[in-house]
Design a binder for these strands. Structure first.
Lengths: 233, 233
DNA sequence: AGCTCGCGTAAAAATGTCGTAAAAAATTCG
DNA sequence: CGAATTTTTTACGACATTTTTACGCGAGCT
């Protein structure tokens, strides 16, 4: 079950804080990527597409505030700031720059984990104002449990497959262009590698369509992109 | 404009804290409802439909934790807990019960306001669904879904056909010259290759007109260009 | 009449996209 | 560390779209 492990990007330069967080987070079932500087963090965010970012404000190269703004130019991924600065002004600036939460060091591991759960809960429910469960004919996707059911049988999807599916679900009915899908699923640096799409769309069709060669759900709009068909008139 | 002011529900029993928050929040353009106990707060939340809830944990009747859980049974409205309890265990319990944020008293007004903005930002991005549908007689074009319907039947258009159609729609009723159309659909390099237009205009008429030879929508203005006719007299 | 010009139509050739399979590389897990 | 899973790379036939090319029609002009 690799798809239910959330990926966390930690941008932090102090080795001993990194070590503490590595143990805490991995011990609670998260996968972790680490970056020791701002630019590196931005690159990692773009290429690895994590589920959440933990960001230290005092970085060796660029300021954490700047990292927040640069991230917010293209993604709504949750950002939790971890900082030794306890001035109210610092908190306000970070939050208004786009951070979702702000913890002052030192903080307890339990509180951090709880706030991570809050942030992840947001992304889970954010795209499902109606329901956290998406139903389309014999296909059921539980966005909270990250569980995909087909005719009441659980279907295992790889992380990318699942991400692609939920991205289509979030924009159900609408055509999504190649670059939109690439940006949301693989990250913005992969925009022109759109042949990945064909491969993973084929995987989804094989796992979820009755007749993969003649898909009912995963429709291609030639030259444009794909869409999840929801209305059968 | 009272309607575009966000409505905040404050559930808090201490009069002096209520007074402080009333001044702070109303001073920053929010409308405020106050409840001094848990049950009252739950009722207010259900009847007044606020945009956000500020919740004190230490209430005279039921515990703030319980209020959080009861709210979460039916609504995803942001809850920010304000509490004097600074034990980590209290924070974790509140956040896991469904609270979105937790501030320990005493807190600065600026930080509270910033965290309110964060919470409102979350709900704002959720409802980011717009509709842009163009209707002309039995023809319907959904510009968001990129879907064209004719008599409730879906019509497939190629990328160029669709771009040509939407270009005409954007200038509905007005005549567009050959070069204008060429520029917008094919790009400025193709301005003089205007015989492409005849071919694709024919395609559109075949796909969307009842009698392609005698078009009702896609009208040629000889020597000038084409226009999409919208008014039938 | 004969000619030209803009328009509509039709069918080819050329180009690019899509679906598929399968091997190589990377990552995760025990 | 080695096995298993997942992602990336590579290749190719089938197909859809765009572009090219060709022809017919009618209006206006000489």
């Amino acid at each position: 079950m690799a798809e239910d492990k959330r990926l966390i990007l930690l941008i932090e330069d102090e080795p001993q804080m990194r070590r503490f967080l590595r143990i805490t987070l991995q011990g609670h079932g998260y996968r972790l990527i680490e970056a020791v500087a701002g630019e590196e963090g931005l690159t990692q965010a773009a290429t690895r597409n994590p589920d959440i970012v933990l960001l230290d404000l005092g970085l060796p190269d660029i300021d954490g505030l700047e990292v927040t703004k640069r991230l917010r130019e293209w993604t709504q991924i949750p950002i939790i700031v971890l900082s030794a600065r306890e001035q109210e002004e610092d908190k306000i600036r970070a939050l208004d720059a786009g951070a979702d939460d702000y913890l002052t060091k030192p903080f307890g591991a339990g509180e951090l984990l709880a706030r991570i759960r809050v942030a992840l809960r947001h992304t889970a429910t954010q795209h499902g104002e109606e329901e956290a469960v998406f139903v389309l004919d014999n296909l059921t996707v539980d966005l909270v449990k990250r569980q995909v059911m087909l005719d009441n049988r659980e279907i295992h999807l790889t992380p990318i497959e699942y991400r692609l599916l939920t991205t289509l679900i979030r924009h159900a009915g609408k055509v999504m262009t190649h670059s939109q899908l690439m940006k949301e699923v693989w990250g913005p640096v992969y925009v022109n590698q759109s042949h990945y799409l064909r491969i993973y769309m084929a995987q989804l069709r094989h796992k979820l369509e009755a007749d993969p060669a003649r898909p009912r759900f995963f429709i291609n709009e030639p030259g444009v992109g794909y869409r999840l068909k929801v209305d059968f008139d």
